[in-house]
Every structure is written in structure tokens, then in C-alpha cells.
Design a binder for these strands. Structure first.
Length: 974
DNA sequence: ACCGCCGGGTGCC
DNA sequence: ACCGCCGGGTGCC
């Protein structure tokens, strides 16, 4: 997460004033001194123009006007209440008509004709945003005064003032003096005096303060008194942890609440909103939902499943058995089916986390190619999920894409033959609107594709096998689009992309014609961009109960929250203007009241616990302790000899680069040397990936050059150095190598080339670069060279000896303890296999080169605790996604240090996580007086950096360069 | 609306 | 009086 100050807009606000700080309006009090800050996403990928426009508005001035005709309308306001002005160009009496609406959207009256005549042009051409407040006289019978505030872009100020002048109006001044008293600042507009608040001094918050303030929004929620627990329905097989029972109780209370929505109370027969000071006669509808913002790993999915089953029908749980409809169908035999023709996927059996499917097509992937043949169907079978490629859906055999998931028996996957079942009946024909007469009790779950299989998996695992529940995975080209049929299921599971795709295809979105009992958005931040089609598709779903599950409630910006509130139908914030006026602008200008409102708003609809949250003094997740030991290794005399000779030779070369100032130009070479040193620390025979370093410019033919560069890139990528792209400073995505041998993300470097054309230069070495000579990494994997090793006679190494000693000692102590042996070098893992076999260890292996099917097998095998199951897993550092669950292991042997400490931590988390019962002991092997020790130093530096600074993210290329050069110095003792 | 405005009734003091 | 003034009718846009 990163933060940045946007000085500009802060200043704009500080130099102007805005309506609000007035004794008459205590609820909108703006203290004169309060730090102002802005939550601004620094990452540009999806910035939203409209919001930015809003932020750039400055105050033009204020004016007094009149609201007339109020006796004709039912909308009511209180004194000091905000109103919205809305153009009504089709008014039969006056094309300039401007309606005045209260916060609830009810019309209060019209602007007086002459005023409307002046404002219509301004509003129609968006020259200014006019905001109104009724300062007093709210209970008048015929007319009431209106205080108007004009906001707009600086460049439009003159036009607006001129236009108003033409109509005989003049804006009141915007006070510039700090602390000027209210009485002195009454404006002089023709329409009456206007007033404004004193402007406050801009006190800039430090980055830390900023972060703290923002974090507190959610951190405060942890210390909540939502301690009532609730037992889930019997149908839920998995016992809930205390914090999950609390979430269950809270969520169900919110769903069934007959109480007024947050911030509403009954006052003199009117419903009064304490946050907006607004009242209505009609009882406002409660928000039957909210945001479950628990940290990752606290079991949001399980909690949501428990809610579905426990609050199934009219507040009652789903009972074990229901009607005995059965869907005839053959058992689906093949358990692992091709995913997109190349990967296979099958999730683990009996464990709460599925294996991550890192090879899954990305979300954007799918949406871009909405081509049906690129979509898949997912099936669940006996708590195992198979992924069915629909590319072959023409063939009769695999015609399985549409399915009713009968959870009867052991999640038996019964199959509907499309052709006979669906087409043949009237289901297809009746696919217009769903029968609104019958109340749906269907829950729609929308999630990113990457977690779809996780949902299927968890639904399978957490629901008792005898429970009769219909789950339909609305996915794949042949998904059943019949809304009547869909609304008879219990759970419909789909992805954002499917939803969006359907939404974009006119008249073909059954999901939008059903009134759902409940809609659950998983990874709710998927809809944080209010302009994204995806968000629109989600916002148009109709549902009684609405939930957002997210681990990151506000990622970077307040704006993110708006879409969520909008989805939850939390009035009046569904309307951007109100959100902006009541929350966003006050908060971004540093108004304490705004922050307070935001806080209570969030608090009322959000439940958040972090991994460190406590329940009754105990941490939510009681993970056993985790201890990290560093075991120093002394190289043997021979090893040291080899190490020193390679080092001395390399050091001389690099020293030359330093004096020449060409370190970065030879970056790949430098890394290559470091890599070789690191490998020698592990084992002197570790292959050096062939290529000796040479200058790319000296290569003879283009083909040779190409080969060499690709080899270099592979070297960099495989060296485990966790290279960041120097442009986005993130991990490399779509790595490409330049002719000057520097690796960047393809999108990043292409952007640079685009921007700097026609003379783009490499951000690292300033060589000329061109879009057409970037080289991509060929798809074939880098691994698979482990076999040719076998020719060479196996020898041990100091590290291997240390490892084997430790493993054997451990086995003697407790033969059941399982260990992870982690290295960045798969070839090293291969070398370790020999002594493991020799000493009779049963082991398995997991690395990036393995096919999905093999991975899953390996994980299942390892996680199995039966006698004879492997006690050791050889694991490559970066294998598997964050979801990888290896909690059967309680020991980790890290054979070689990683550049990035976060990568190590992530690796440790694979066994130190929910489900771990034992103390986790981690041993890091570090060779004394070697590059490895220096790497530890760099790790510590990185740790400090990560912990301390937040603004550090956007270091520029120069700093980046310097940092890299310094790293190299440290590593090679220069 | 205890207003403004309209338009008909009316017309010395 | 092609005015002023009176008082009733009336009333958003």
C-alpha cells in the first residue's frame, strides 16, 4: 500500500472556503485547525476521471436564492440541510427549470424562475457545480431561502461570474482571511446575504500520520463489542472458530434486522438521519448486509457459507433434507480434466484451502476473449473439483458444461444433458423474466475467477454430505441462462467477468432479471472503480441482502469505498453528490467531522478482524509460535578454494565495471557472478546455466544475440533474485529483455518507449531502446535439466551434510514430524534427493516446473498424515501461490537465502498458517563469510525499508540505480 | 401569502 | 381616468 500527498488539491481547498463551519450547523463543524490530507491512489492503472474532476473543483463563491413552490411537493428539509439542484429541461412551463431535492431525492420545490434562468446555462454546460443548503425557513409553507455554493474548475470562473452578472446576480466573496468571523463575511449577492466559514490553515500530515489516520478507520473496528456468538446451522460440517461465530451472529443480525438503518432514528413521527440531518416520513429501508473485512485467512468464505445455510429461509436454517427431486445423470468419471488444453487442475481433498491455480487464465484474459471456447465449466465431485475445458464441448463425451450441482450424498455431481434436458423442455423458452411471484431464496456469489474453484471446494467441504443443496456454477459457454431455473437453485456461483459479459450482452443477463435473496461479492474491491463496466454490472443486481467480502476494505483511496456503499444501497451515499459532499470532500480537506462521519459509517456496516485481533484476550487465530534459527555453515577447504577463486576473479571484473561506471550495463553479468557464488555456497556442482558472460554488443549474428539475451533473461529470472521491474517496482510480469540486457515488465517498458519516442532510452543504462527489439521469455520452462545431472557422480556439500544431520536427528526424535526443504535452485533440490533416498526418507517435491496435476498430487500426498506418507517436501521457494497450504509441515529448512525477505516469509506462511497445530521451527542455512551473509544484511535493510516508509514506493529510476549499485557493493564486499 | 402581483372597479372634498 | 387608488383573487416551474 502506498500513499502520496497531492499538494495541489490540498492547496486549492485551503485557499478557498467551503460551506459548513457554522454554529448553526454543528454536525458539519469544521475545526479551524485540522490536518488535511487526501487519500490518493498513486498507482495509475485505473484512475477515474470523474472523481479527479471532482477533486479539482475550487470554490467560486456563494449566493442566496429562493426555493419556491414547496407546497406542491412532499420533500421535506430541516434547517441547515443540504439539498441538491437538478435541472429539469423538460418542464412544460420553463425549460430553465431547476428542481430542488432533499437528500432522499424527494423534490422540495423549484428554484425561482429568474434564478433558474441564470443557472440553467451554467449547469447544462457543467461550468459549475451548484450545491445548496437551506439555512433556515425549512418549515415555510410557500418558499424558503437557499444558500448556494458554486464549485468549478478555475478556468471556468470568469465565464460563470460573467454569466451570472448578465442575469443580475453576483457571487458573494469567498473569505480568504483565516479565522474571520462569520458575521463579517456575509456576502453581497443580489439574492441576499451569503455566509461562509472561516478557512483553516493547511497543516500537512506526515506520511505516517496520514497512514495512521486512515488505518484507524478500520483498526478501530477490531476493538468492537460484537462478541455475541452464534452456532451455525447443523448443515455446516466444519466447526466454526469463535470469531467466525461472532461474524455469523453479526451478519445474520444485520440480515434480519427490523431496526432502522444506521444513523436513523425516530424523532417526532419523522425518521431522522443523524449523519445528514435529514428526515423522511417513510420508514427508511434497512441495509440488510454489509462488509466483512476480515484479514485473509480468517475464514470469510466459511463464514459466508455458514450465513447462507443458517439464515437460509426466512430466518430459518436449511434443514438436512428437502424434497427428493433427483437429477439423473452419469457420474463424471474423469477427475482431472484439461484446463485450457494445457494445465490440469484438481484441488486438494479434505483441506480448507485449495491449491492455487497459478496457471489459471487471468481475469482480464477471460473478459477479453469472451469467446465461448475460452470459458470453462467447473464441477464438483465428491468434494473434488474438476475443471472442464469446453473447447471440446462439441464432443458428446465431455458435454458437461451445464450442471446442477446436487450436493446430495457426497456432493454428487449430477449432470444435466443439455440437449435432452434443457433444450427439450420449456425451460429455454421461458427464459424471460423470473417468476417474481415466488420469493427467491437463491444466493448469488460473485468472485474473481481465481477463487472460483476455492468456493466450490469450500462449499463441498463445509457442508454436511447429507445436506441437500443446489449449487450451480454459472460459468462456461453453455451455462444455463434460464432465470426461472436459476432462481430455483440455492446458490449460484459466478465470476465478475461472466456477470459483466452477460450485462454487456443485451437482454441476455438472467442474473440481472432475478431478484436475489442475497448477493455476496467476494474480493469486493473488484468493484472499486466506479466507472468500470464491472462495477455497473454489479450495481444493477437486485437483492434483498448484500454482502461484500474483502480483505482490503479501502485499498488506496476513499473513492474505493463509494462503490461498495453504493452496492450496499446505503442511502444517501448511493448518490455520488451526497457521498462527495458529506464524506469525500470533508475528509479530503481534513475535516474532522467528515472523518468522524466516515468512521461511524464504516463502523456501522463493517466487521473487521485482523490476524492479531483478540477475542476474550486470545488472538483470533492462535497460531503456534514460529521460531527462526540461522545455522551457519563453514565451507570445506575445497569448497572454500573454489568459492574464493570464483569470487576473486569476479570481484576484479566488477571492480573494473565500477571504475568504468558500467556496473548496470553489466548488470546481468554481475547477477550471474553472484548467482554462481550463491550456488557454490549450496553445492559446488550446481550448474551455472551454461553461458559465460559476454558483452551483448559483441555478438555476431542477430540470432546469436537473441539467444544470448534470452539466456540472460532466463538467468536473471531463474536466479531467484526476485527481480523487480525498475519501472513499476513490482515483480516482473511479462518479462522482456532489452538489447542492453535489462529486464522489465513488457507493459512498463512499452509505456516508456511510447512516452519517450522516438528516442527512448533504457531506464537503467540509458542505451537506446526500441519497441521492436524487446525479447520475450519463450514459454518453454527453464527447468528439466535435472536429469542430465545424473551422469556426474554425486557428491555431497557442507550444506547438504548439515541438512542431512538435522533431518536424521529430527527423525530420531520424532519420526512423524514433516519438513519443508526449500531452495531457490531446483537443481539443488535434485541433488538433495540422492541422500534423502539413501537415508530412507519418504519425500515428495513441489516446484514451478511441475504440471498442475502433479502439484496437486504432491500436495495431497504430503498433507496426508497416514503412516508411510512423505515426511519431507522439496519445495522451490516460489512454487505455488499464497493459498498453498502445507500446514502438515512444522519444520522448514531454508537452504539458501532469498533476495527478498518477503519471499521467505511467504514461504514460511505456507506451513505457519491456519491449521498448524505445532510450533514451527525454521532453520536458515547461511554460509559463513560468503555472499549469503551479505544477503542477510540486504534483507535487513529491505525489512527496515518496508516497515518504516510508505512514500518510498515511488523512488525514481536514478535512486533505483543507486540502490542496486549499493546492493552490489555490499554483496561483493567492495 | 401578515407578502407581491394581477386586473377590475372606481374616481373631488 | 391613456391615470392612481382600492380591495379581492390569487399564488412554482
Amino acid at each position: 500500500m502506498s500513499w502520496k500527498f497531492k499538494r495541489d488539491s490540498v492547496w486549492k481547498y485551503s485557499q478557498s472556503a467551503q460551506y459548513g463551519a457554522h454554529e448553526n450547523i454543528p454536525r458539519l463543524s469544521y475545526p479551524p485547525f485540522f490536518p488535511r490530507f487526501e487519500f490518493q491512489d498513486i498507482i495509475p492503472p485505473d484512475d477515474f476521471q470523474t472523481s479527479d474532476e471532482e477533486l479539482d473543483l475550487v470554490l467560486f463563491g456563494t449566493m442566496r436564492g429562493q426555493v419556491v413552490g414547496i407546497r406542491y411537493y412532499t420533500g421535506v428539509v430541516n434547517n441547515n440541510e443540504m439539498v441538491a439542484l437538478e435541472r429539469e429541461p423538460n418542464n412544460p412551463y420553463d425549460k430553465n427549470a431547476i428542481k430542488v431535492n432533499n437528500v432522499n431525492g424527494n423534490q422540495v420545490g423549484h428554484l425561482k424562475r429568474d434564478l433558474a434562468a441564470a443557472l440553467a446555462y451554467i449547469m447544462d454546460n457543467k461550468l459549475a457545480q451548484v450545491e445548496g443548503v437551506v439555512p433556515f425557513g425549512a418549515s415555510n409553507t410557500f418558499t424558503m431561502p437557499l444558500h448556494m455554493t458554486f464549485w468549478g474548475k478555475e478556468e471556468n470562473r470568469e465565464v460563470v461570474l460573467d454569466h451570472l452578472k448578465k442575469h443580475g446576480f453576483k457571487l458573494g466573496p469567498t473569505p480568504k482571511t483565516v479565522g474571520s468571523s462569520l458575521e463579517n463575511t456575509w456576502g453581497s449577492g443580489r439574492a441576499g446575504p451569503s455566509y461562509s466559514r472561516p478557512v483553516h490553515v493547511a497543516v500537512q500530515m506526515t506520511t505516517e500520520q496520514l497512514k495512521t489516520e486512515f488505518d484507524k478507520l478500520f483498526e478501530d473496528l477490531k476493538e468492537d463489542d460484537r462478541t455475541i456468538e452464534m452456532e451455525p446451522a447443523e448443515a455446516v460440517e466444519t466447526p466454526l472458530l469463535p470469531h467466525q461465530k461472532q461474524a455469523l451472529a453479526w451478519m445474520i443480525a444485520r440480515e434480519n434486522s427490523k431496526e432502522l438503518p444506521p444513523f436513523w432514528e425516530l424523532r417526532n413521527d419523522l425518521y431522522y438521519n443523524t449523519i445528514t440531518n435529514f428526515s423522511v416520513k417513510e420508514r427508511p429501508e434497512n441495509v440488510h448486509g454489509g462488509i466483512l473485512a476480515d484479514d485473509m485467512g480468517l475464514g470469510k468464505t466459511l463464514t459466508a457459507i455458514a450465513v447462507i445455510l443458517t439464515n437460509f429461509d426466512d430466518g430459518r436454517p436449511l434443514l438436512g433434507k428437502r424434497g427428493k427431486e433427483s437429477h439423473p445423470g452419469k457420474e463424471y468419471k474423469d477427475e482431472t480434466v484439461k484446463l485450457r488444453g494445457s494445465n490440469t487442475n484438481k484441488t486438494t481433498d479434505g483441506h480448507s484451502e485449495p491449491s492455487a491455480c497459478s496457471e489459471e487464465p487471468s481475469i482480464s484474459d477471460v473478459s477479453e476473449k469472451s469467446n465461448v471456447s475460452d470459458l470453462f465449466s467447473f464441477f464438483s465431485k465428491r468434494r473434488k473439483i474438476s475443471v472442464q475445458s469446453t473447447e471440446s464441448s462439441e464432443s458428446e463425451e465431455i458435454e458437461t458444461s451445464k450442471l446442477s450441482q446436487k450436493m446430495k450424498g457426497k456432493l454428487k455431481n449430477t449432470q444435466l444433458d443439455t440437449k435432452s434436458k434443457v433444450k427439450g423442455t420449456s425451460v429455454m423458452e421461458s427464459s424471460k423474466k423470473c417468476d417474481t411471484g415466488e420469493r427467491t431464496r437463491t444466493t448469488l456469489i460473485i468472485c474473481p475467477l481465481s477463487v472460483l474453484s476455492n468456493w466450490i471446494d469450500q462449499i463441498g467441504q463445509h457442508i454436511k454430505s447429507e445436506v441437500d443443496l443446489n449449487l450451480y456454477v454459472y460459468y462456461g459457454p453453455d451455462r444455463i441462462r434460464d432465470s426461472t431455473w436459476l432462481s430455483k437453485q440455492d446458490i449460484i456461483l459466478t465470476t465478475y467477468n461472466i456477470l459483466t459479459h452477460d450485462y454487456g450482452t443485451k437482454d441476455n443477463s438472467p442474473l440481472h432479471s432475478i431478484k436475489w435473496l442475497r448477493v455476496i461479492l467476494d474480493e469486493g474491491h473488484a468493484i472499486r472503480n466506479p466507472n468500470a463496466q464491472q462495477t455497473k454490472a454489479v450495481l444493477e443486481l437486485e437483492a434483498e441482502r448484500r454482502w461484500v467480502l474483502t480483505g482490503t476494505p479501502i485499498q488506496n483511496s476513499l473513492k474505493d469505498l463509494w462503490s461498495l456503499l453504493s452496492f450496499l444501497k446505503l442511502k444517501p451515499f448511493t448518490d455520488r453528490e451526497w457521498w462527495h459532499r458529506i464524506i469525500q470532500r470533508p475528509v479530503t480537506t481534513g475535516d474532522e467531522g467528515g472523518l468522524r462521519r466516515l468512521q461511524s459509517l464504516i463502523k456501522s456496516i463493517t466487521l473487521r478482524r485482523t490476524k492479531t485481533s483478540k477475542i476474550k484476550g486470545k488472538p483470533v487465530l492462535e497460531l503456534p509460535e514460529r521460531k527462526v534459527f540461522i545455522q551457519h555453515i563453514t565451507l570445506s577447504v575445497e569448497e572454500r578454494k573454489i568459492y574464493q577463486s570464483v569470487k576473486n576473479e569476479g570481484k576484479a571484473t566488477i571492480a573494473r565495471y565500477f571504475t568504468e561506471g558500467t556496473v548496470l550495463a553489466h548488470y546481468a553479468d554481475v547477477l550471474g557472478l553472484l548467482l554462481r557464488l550463491r550456488q557454490i555456497c549450496c553445492h559446488v556442482h550446481l550448474p551455472t546455466n551454461g553461458t559465460s558472460s559476454s558483452d551483448p554488443s559483441r555478438s555476431d549474428t542477430p540470432e546469436e544475440l537473441r539467444k544470448m539475451l534470452v539466456t540472460k533473461m532466463k538467468l536473471i529470472l531463474s536466479s531467484g533474485s526476485d527481480e523487480e521491474c525498475s519501472i513499476c517496482l513490482d515483480s516482473l510480469t511479462f518479462p522482456v529483455i532489452t538489447h542492453c540486457a535489462h529486464v522489465f515488465c513488457k507493459p512498463c517498458i512499452c509505456q516508456v518507449i511510447q512516452r519517450e519516442q522516438p528516442h527512448a532510452k533504457c531506464p537503467l543504462c540509458r542505451s537506446n531502446i526500441h519497441g521492436h527489439n524487446l525479447l520475450e521469455c519463450p514459454p518453454e520452462e527453464l527447468a528439466c535439466d535435472s536429469d542430465n545431472k545424473s551422469d556426474m557422480e554425486w557428491t555431497s556439500s557442507s550444506k547438504i551434510n548439515a541438512l542431512m544431520n538435522a533431518l536424521i536427528e529430527l527423525r530420531t526424535k520424532d519420526p512423524n514430524i514433516k519438513s519443508l526443504v526449500v531452495s531457490q535452485f531446483t537443481t539443488f533440490l535434485s541433488l538433495i534427493e540422492t541422500p534423502l533416498k539413501a537415508s530412507g526418507f519418504v519425500f515428495t517435491r513441489l516446484d514451478g516446473s511441475m504440471a498442475q496435476k502433479k502439484r496437486v498430487e504432491s500436495i495431497q500426498c504430503f498433507q496426508n498424515t497416514d503412516a508411510g506418507s512423505p515426511t519431507i517436501m522439496l519445495l522451490s521457494l516460489k512454487a505455488g501461490g499464497v493459498g498453498l497450504n502445507l500446514c502438515a509441515a512444522s519444520r522448514v529448512f531454508l537452504m539458501d537465502p532469498a533476495w527478498n525477505p518477503a519471499a521467505e516469509d511467504q514461504c514460511f506462511d505456507r506451513c505457519h498458517r491456519l491449521g498448524q497445530k505445532q510450533e514451527v521451527i525454521i532453520t536458515k542455512f547461511i554460509v559463513k563469510d560468503s555472499v549469503e551473509e551479505n544477503m542477510l544484511k540486504i534483507q535487513n535493510m529491505k525489512r527496515e525499508l518496508a516497515a518504516g516508509a510508505f512514500g518510498t514506493k515511488k523512488t525514481d529510476a536514478d535512486e533505483m540505480k543507486q540502490a542496486k549499485i549499493n546492493e552490489i557493493r555490499t554483496l561483493i564486499d567492495l
